[in-house]
């Protein structure tokens, strides 16, 4: 019984460690990335948007 519990705890700690290592946010709190991240999929829109003046190029 105790051994099973320890094994489960160890597995949980390993998973948490791996997630933390890869900066994986498991919390529900929303967090910001950057416009560059958005650009990876939304390039046309980003280019159109950033060109006039709102976002510094390469920021």
């Amino acid at each position: 019984m105790h051994i099973t519990l320890y094994v489960l705890l160890a597995v949980f700690a390993c998973i948490s460690g791996v997630l933390a290592f890869f900066h994986y946010d498991i919390s529900e709190q929303a967090h910001y990335v950057t416009s560059e991240q958005c650009e990876q999929c939304h390039r046309t829109r980003y280019t159109s948007y950033s060109a006039p003046r709102h976002v510094p190029p390469g920021n």
Binding site: Y24, D25, A30, H31, Y32, V33, T34, S35, Q37, C38, C41, H42, Y46, Y49, H54, V55, P56, N59
Partner: peptide, 22 residues
């Protein structure tokens, strides 16, 4: 702050979870 200037998320909200999920 996450970036200088008015980025996408200023109007669309934080996109962290969206990026991870995508």
């Amino acid at each position: 702050f996450s970036e200088y200037g008015i980025g996408c998320e200023a109007c669309h909200g934080p996109a962290g979870k969206h990026v991870i999920q995508q």
